[in-house]
């Protein structure tokens, strides 16, 4: 199977989307003969036509992106607009998505999931589904006990996809947990992320005392 993975993260190579897909592809490559072309949307910004051509010629495409302001990043939307000439075309690739967000609950991604499902229909693509995951900000600095399970699910999803050309719904559902946080979890997770991620980064940049600055206050 030949897969095209379009990494739509504005962070490009150093993205959480890329880290997750790296584990997916590790599983995907386990089947002999499987090949994946990885394309970075940020690298095609000046000439999106090249990426549209790659898309057109692909058999399977997975587009990955982080949640930005509850939807796709503007640059990903721009790419979708470049696909407009392909609406309803026969022979468009099978299309799937990987959508991740920094919020700990996967629920935040469920709204844009409806959009991408409709987009696949609009493009007359066979819809592979969407792999959704919350809690993905700062994956590179999250402790392994948090990330190991996600990575294992991505690996298994990739392996199953490499064999069957479909997203395993049971694995997707397991990966998506938690959809929501319990009261107890909210009370633990919020101060943990604020301290372990945001305070750490603010301190690293010597900006903690300016954290609440209001530069646009009139």
């Amino acid at each position: 199977m030949r897969l095209t993975f379009i990494n739509g993260s504005p962070r490009g190579v150093k993205s959480n989307t890329g880290i997750l897909m790296g584990h997916f592809l590790r599983g995907f490559f386990e089947k002999d003969g499987n090949v994946c072309d990885v394309e970075y949307l940020v690298k095609h910004r000046k000439d999106p036509g090249v990426l549209v051509d790659i898309y057109k010629k692909s058999e399977f495409v997975i587009i990955g992106f982080p949640l930005y302001v509850d939807g796709m990043p503007g640059s990903v939307k721009q790419f979708f607009e470049h696909l407009a000439p392909l609406v309803g075309r026969e022979g468009n690739p099978a299309l799937g998505f990987v959508i991740q967000c920094g919020f700990p609950e996967t629920h935040h991604t469920r709204f844009v999931e409806k959009y991408v499902a409709k987009l696949a229909k609009r493009l007359n693509c066979r819809y592979l589904g969407a792999i959704l995951k919350g809690g993905c900000e700062g994956l590179a600095i999250q402790p392994p006990f948090l990330t190991e399970k996600y990575y294992e699910y991505f690996y298994q999803l990739g392996r199953a996809f490499g064999l069957e050309g479909a997203f395993d719904a049971t694995l997707c559902a397991k990966l998506a947990r938690p959809e929501h946080l319990s009261r107890e979890n909210l009370e633990q997770v919020i101060p943990f992320v604020n301290s372990a991620l945001w305070d750490m980064l603010l301190e690293q940049n010597g900006a903690k005392d300016k954290s609440f600055d209001r530069p646009y206050q009139s």
């Binding site: 302001v69 796709m72 939307k77 987009l119 997770v189 604020n194 945001w198 609440f212």
Partner: peptide
């Protein structure tokens, strides 16, 4: 393509400095 234009979404993405990272 079923959504607000990319330039509108892009403008909204750039509004995030107005909120704070803390959860």
């Amino acid at each position: 393509m079923g959504f607000i234009s990319a330039i509108t979404k892009n403008a909204m993405d750039r509004i995030i400095p107005l909120i704070h990272p803390y959860l």
